[in-house]
């Protein structure tokens, strides 16, 4: 199946400054894809190239299989976009703004307009000039304009910026609903790692214009590395596990016991052996890392390797506990 978004070795230079370098990225259909990185990491430039607003210096950008540079109208036909500070014609009503923006994709019926206004909770205020709207209402209007043309793909560049916690919560719920009920593919660029962690099924991290990570979030959060183990008696159980080759090393620290399984050994296999060998199994868990921990670990300078050229599928750093 064609991916929703594909970037092939895309580079963008602004004069001497390289904003994005050799970026290859795939956003599969149906995913909630998080694009992370510091300010100036190249996220907005990458999104600009996806939407045909920024011309790549090299490489190719495809949306639903169509080249954005040469087949722009087809590529963007089923795409909705929301930017950090959504801009509207302040002197026109919300409804008129929606009519204008949606018409650049396809004309929409009054019924569809009413449906989307209802969806985002702006019914009753659609005839007011946008200059009278609150920040939250503007965010909802931005979502409405993105949803009007029945998109398959929503691209959101810092959508929660400037919203209060309630607004952020509301936006997250709306995006989850869109993904769940309408099956939309979402690409979200944001600094709000807590929100991204709750939303995203797959993430990519950019640093200084280069991708340093891309992969499914569920594989990252249950990171490889030591597994927390509490069994009675601990030393005997560990010795047994090592003797049969299920565990490479083990030890105790301030949080309790840990074991490092042999390659390919899952926690289930360890649990089964411990129970069958007659030990008491009190706890066996793979520590979960937060997106913030993972993100910061990627951003930390690594003297061992040049991470700018290291684009890994899943991190191998030990999880912080």
């Amino acid at each position: 199946m064609t991916a929703a978004i594909e970037l092939h070795h895309v580079t963008k230079r602004f004069g001497r400054r390289t904003a994005v370098e050799d970026l290859t990225l795939t956003v599969p259909i149906g995913e909630v894809f998080g694009l992370l990185g510091h300010n100036g990491a190249g996220k907005s430039t990458a999104i600009g190239m996806m939407l045909g607003q920024v011309w790549p210096t090299a490489g190719q950008v495809r949306i639903h299989g169509w080249d954005v540079a040469t087949q722009r109208t087809r590529a963007l036909a089923r795409v909705g976009a929301i930017f950090e500070t959504p801009a509207f014609y302040e002197y026109l009503s919300g409804l008129r703004n929606l009519e204008i923006f949606s018409s650049y994709t396809a004309p929409v019926s009054q019924r569809r307009l009413a449906e989307v206004l209802d969806w985002v909770g702006l019914t009753g205020r659609e005839h007011s000039a946008v200059r009278t709207y609150s920040h939250g209402m503007r965010a909802r209007l931005a979502l409405a304009q993105a949803l009007l043309p029945h998109p398959d793909l929503l691209i959101l560049d810092e959508p929660g910026e400037g919203l209060d916690p309630e607004g952020v919560h509301e936006l997250r719920q709306m995006l989850q609903r869109l993904h769940r009920e309408l099956g939309l593919t979402l690409l979200i660029s944001s600094h709000q790692l807590g929100e991204m962690e709750q939303l995203c099924t797959r993430i990519a991290v950019l640093r200084q214009g280069r991708k340093v990570f891309e992969g499914p979030w569920d594989r990252v959060q249950w990171a490889e590395g030591p597994i927390r183990l509490e069994a009675r008696p601990f030393e005997r159980a560990v010795a047994g596990l090592q003797a049969v080759g299920l565990v490479l090393e083990a030890g105790r620290d301030a949080e309790g016991g840990w074991v490092r399984p042999a390659p390919g050994i899952t926690p289930d296999q360890l649990a089964r052996w411990i129970v069958e060998a007659g030990f008491d199994l009190l706890e066996l868990r793979r520590p979960r890392q937060t997106l913030e921990q993972f993100y910061l670990s990627l951003m930390r300078p690594d003297p061992q390797s040049d991470s700018r050229s290291d684009s890994r599928e899943v991190t191998r750093r030990p999880a912080a506990t």
């Binding site: 923006f101 650049y104 994709t105």
Partner: peptide, 14 residues
């Protein structure tokens, strides 16, 4: 300057 052009240019119009 207002940013509305960027909104339009995310649409399939040449």
């Amino acid at each position: 300057e207002d940013g509305t052009l960027r909104m339009i240019l995310s649409r399939p119009i040449s």
